[in-house]
């Protein structure tokens, strides 16, 4: 059973639906006891960093997530703003992040990229043994964001992509996978990614 944290923001149902189609059982919940019983956890996110963080705090989900990740070492996939929330802070707003991973989010500079936001299907590279991607067609995922992570954390596997500049598209550290792209919106490539996370990570 996969527990999808009910952040009430954005793409929760998309994650639920694609898992269902991939024949993976999941529940959407805010409850600690239900999340503790799940094999793995997904933290989705769409929206502004501040709005998402305040929403977590409203339901004390910030504490629950920290407990699940740090004390219980639950395997977790954090998507888009869900991933950004793990960092110290984002330039998109004043809220502090969960500070689980050392790093922050910064905005693209128009002098470096074609357009802001970065929207489209970009190829990722990752040498992690569970989530191994080589930058070819099967590695293209859908991105839609203006802020991207800058990671300072040591001993972490970075997932990279490019959009005129090379930048971090996510990371893998012990029990945590964080991705800037949207596997739940990435057609078959996304379904394969999620299946991989559920079955192999």
């Amino acid at each position: 059973m996969i527990g999808i944290i009910d952040t009430e923001t954005g793409n929760i149902n998309s994650v639920f639906n694609i898992l269902k189609r991939t024949k993976i059982k999941s529940i959407i919940t805010k409850k600690m006891d239900e999340l503790l019983e799940c094999d793995k956890i997904i933290l989705p996110g769409v929206g502004r960093f501040d709005a998402c963080m305040r929403n977590l705090q409203k339901y004390e989900l910030d504490k629950i997530i920290k407990h699940l990740i740090i004390e219980k070492e639950k395997k977790i996939l954090c998507i888009c703003v869900g991933m950004q929330l793990l960092l110290n802070y984002s330039e998109e707003g004043d809220c502090e992040g969960l500070k689980i991973i050392d790093g922050h989010c910064t905005k693209f500079l128009i002098s470096q990229v074609n357009n802001i936001p970065h929207i489209g299907w970009s190829p990722i590279k990752s040498k992690n043994r569970f989530l191994n991607y080589d930058g070819h067609e099967k590695s293209r995922f859908y991105f839609c964001h203006s802020y991207y992570p800058v990671i300072k954390e040591k001993n972490i596997d970075l997932i990279n992509t490019n959009f005129n500049i090379e930048f971090c598209a996510g990371f893998i550290k012990k029990n945590i996978v964080g991705v800037q792209f949207h596997p739940e919106k990435s057609l078959q490539n996304g379904a394969d990614f999620l299946k991989n996370f559920v079955e192999k990570f």
């Binding site: 929206g47 502004r48 998109e92 203006s146």
Partner: peptide
């Protein structure tokens, strides 16, 4: 956009 983010 303040609520759901500019990108959306």
């Amino acid at each position: 956009s303040n609520e759901i983010g500019s990108q959306s």
